[in-house]
Every structure is written in C-alpha cells, then in structure tokens.
Design a protein around this nucleic acid. Sequence first.
DNA 1: ATTCCAAGGTTGATACGTCAACCATAGGCT
DNA 2: AGCCTATGGTTGACGTATCAACCTTGGAAT
Lengths: 149, 149
Amino acid sequence: MDKNELNEEEMRLWHTWKGSFHRIFGRVIKDMSERTGLSEGDYGILDRLALFGNGSLRQQELADSMDWDKSRLSHHLTRMEKRGLVMRKSLDTDRGVLVIITSAGQSALDDARPVAAAAIRKHFLDQLTDLDVESIMKLAERTKARPAE
Amino acid sequence: MDKNELNEEEMRLWHTWKGSFHRIFGRVIKDMSERTGLSEGDYGILDRLALFGNGSLRQQELADSMDWDKSRLSHHLTRMEKRGLVMRKSLDTDRGVLVIITSAGQSALDDARPVAAAAIRKHFLDQLTDLDVESIMKLAERTKARPAE
DNA sequence: ATTCCAAGGTTGATACGTCAACCATAGGCT
DNA sequence: AGCCTATGGTTGACGTATCAACCTTGGAAT
C-alpha cells in the first residue's frame, strides 16, 4: 500500500484515538478544576512538592519530575505564586531557586485529592477493561524510546 | 477499597496513559507542523473545506464537523485568514458566513497530506498491535455517551 | 404590530504551551 | 588571572483554548 496516504480505517483509528483521549481527559480535568479551582498543572506541582519534596523542591527537580521544560514551569509558577499557592526562595549556596508550598497551597491540595481521585476513577478507570489496561501499559513501553530518524 | 483515593497501580495507569498520548501526539504534531507550517487545527479545517465541503462550508457546519465551539473556530479562522489560507464571505440569504479555502490554502493542504500521513503512520499506526486497535475502538464506543451525573 | 427568543458570529480576557533570546554565575581550562 | 561554558532561571512574543458578554437579525408567539 502507498505509504503516503492513509486509508479510511487508518484515518478513523487516528481520529478515534484522539477523540477518546480528549473526551475522557477533558471530563476529568473539567470535573476537577470546576470543583477545586486547580488545573492539572497546579495539582501536579502541589502534589510533587508535598509528597516527593516534603514541602519544597528545587525548580529544576520539579521541572524534571513534571517532564516540563524550565520555561513552562517558570511561567506556571509565576501564576501560582500570584495566587498564593507557592513561594519561591533563591538559594545562595548555588544559583538555584527553591519552590515551597504555602499553607494555602497545602490545603488546596488536601481538598483536591479526593476530588481528583473520584474524577479519574469515574471518567477513566471505571471505563477500562483488562484488555485496555494491558494495551495502555504495553504501548507506553513500546513508545518510550525516541523514534529512529 | 476507599473510593476517594487511588492506589499506586491506578495512579501509574493514569499517568502512563496521559504520557503515551502526549508523547505520540506530540511527535506527530511536531513532525507535521515543522515540515508543513500547518498546525493540527489548520490541517483539519483545510481538509474539511476541501473534501467535505468541496471548497467551502458554512462556519457553523465547519464547527460541528470539527467538534469545536463557534468561538474557538472564529478565533482560529481569524488567524488563518490573516495568513491567507482561507477567506470569509457573509451570506445575505441568512446571517451565516461562508468559509472558503484559498488557492494558497489548497496548495498548503496538498503539500501537507503526504507529510501528515507519514507522521501518523510512523509515530502512531506503526506502533500499534491488533490488541491496541481493538482496545482503542472499543473504549471509544464505551465512552462516547455522556457520563451519568 | 410588538415582543421575545434563538441562531450565528465576534470580541476581550485570561490561562496555558512553546520557542528563542537573554542574564548571571560557578567551575574548569589555559 | 582571564576566558569559556554549562547550569539554572526569566522574559517576551505568539499561537492556542475556554468562558462570558455582546451584537444582529430572522421568525415565532401573542
């Protein structure tokens, strides 16, 4: 078959895959942000600060654990700082910056945990069969490496 | 088990699912946009105008077929119009607007087709097993309906 | 004929993502 | 000492997504 075009079925597969993701992910995110005021990024950051960092992390560590680049994180932290969810404190030992969860951030996180869990369970986990679980885990394994150029 | 928290495995499943999507989708989009100058939205719009609409569509029809709301489409068309990919023409029969692909838009689309196909094939289709295909199609079927509130 | 409403769009504000340019400095090299 | 570079961050610009407010007008209801 011609490598330069997709047939009906291939196209449908691509659109279906995209569609399912957006639908499910969108439901989770909307549920969560409407009920907690936290976006997915907010939640991920607070979660890592609290659990992985025990309250604080260097910005670079945080960026690595989120798999975000430093610019994206910097912008996001600026917004979160404005809302009082985190604080930044420059280290004088080296030129790094320590990101610290505030008490407002901590309680927002505490409130959000059960909501996030419920949303993920309802819209995602509860929809999956064993087949889906197997497919998800194996596909991730298979695609983790960079593709050959 | 407590319905209000997720265990290790459930969390890993969620993160893995999100991660795979972003990784694969990101590769396709980046490949495509770098080589063609068209974003996914641009491509989807031009594709529908050309094939589904035979060159033009009412804005509302276009929005429906993209599954976008009118505001999102309006903003996007404004940007595309500025780049000369489409034109807008108001209908005097009713208060609708006709969106028309320009010749620049048509040739951008023609150039992009094989690139898009190759990117989707390489990063997505070629990574899938029969198991994945089955999972994708069935999950979509299962989650299509609105969730019960 | 008025009134009212829904359809079809636009606009502005704000959040989010990405890219490239920039800045400061700690450490290594010569 | 003087120079270089990698590290760690910030910033501005631009594209994209969402939400709410708004505008216009064709028709329906009374």
